[in-house]
Design a protein around this nucleic acid. Sequence first.
DNA 1: GGGAGATGATTAACATGTTAAGTGAATTCC
DNA 2: GGAATTCACTTAACATGTTAATCATCTCCC
Lengths: 178, 178
Amino acid sequence: MARKKSSNDMRSAPAETGATRRAPMREFSRSLPMSLLRAREAVMRQFRPSLRNHGLTEQQWRILRALTSVDEIEVTELARVAFLLGPSLSRILRDLEARQLIERKAAENDLRRAVVSISPKGLKLIEAVAPTSEAIYATITKRYGARRLAELQEMLGLLEASLAGMTSADDGEVEADE
Amino acid sequence: MARKKSSNDMRSAPAETGATRRAPMREFSRSLPMSLLRAREAVMRQFRPSLRNHGLTEQQWRILRALTSVDEIEVTELARVAFLLGPSLSRILRDLEARQLIERKAAENDLRRAVVSISPKGLKLIEAVAPTSEAIYATITKRYGARRLAELQEMLGLLEASLAGMTSADDGEVEADE
DNA sequence: GGGAGATGATTAACATGTTAAGTGAATTCC
DNA sequence: GGAATTCACTTAACATGTTAATCATCTCCC
């Protein structure tokens, strides 16, 4: 099959090719969203190959991972914990259920709610992936520094909290025809 | 019961609903990838409504924004600057060109390369969005603290750099021939 | 107890993320 | 100078992000 390392990846190292400058706008590549995006991508780039080898996407892994810490959990709560939107979660659960990695049943007192739990097969899969995953995490921690990592998480949490109540002034409400 | 506030958004505040615990695995919701994801989402949540009012997605905005700082730029370089993968960029450029927000031509010395630039119409759109965008950014900076923000960016950059050369041990699945 | 509204979950529709394969143009190498 | 290889995209195919709409309960309240 020949699996290239990353021949096609246009999203990696800096290279300073051509491109004549034009205006003195704020250095766009240093905006907060971009910094967060790049940092996260740098981290996930480490995990994806291993997950892929086990037939899991990042999100599927998040779900199974979340399920290992509870006996069972309602879909809405799972969405919050795994930080996925409802529609994404719905699709992924359908798939995971078809692969028999999870089990699903209706809640007893409320037929609207669905209760999900990980299956033995799912647990086995998690246990197969976990070691590599932990090793990668440990390497990252070592490289970046445990202390610094903790501090970073602290600051990220604070950022999240700072923006919690911001209602986004919503701009002009224009119709922007095409 | 039922004192939820956000109608459809399953991805916001903590709520500690049911879900019996099971194992003492590392607190999954505090992993680095999750922290980064949540922080970025908290930030983007502020910008999306405004962009949407102007008919732009986050990625389209990134591209136009990147184009304002140069006269013209090759597609590959644009992918690096806007931090998008080739296929995503291809699709978006096709759309932006159809909406006449950008212009595209072939490079002179190499017909494989395409050179992109923002159009007057695109510039006008940027100028319409920028004020709101800047205001939101300013509010975030004020809430979080300019000093702290700078420090965060510093730490994110360092994280990225720390992981630059990590080749991801790739887990099982051998590298077949090649 | 029955209709209006709220709620939990899914489906729909479109845009992007991600990897693999394809296409045409430049380079290399013999 | 032409076949093989590399290069710069572009397409394809599938999974997820995102918003809106739908569907089936459930609750509330008269």
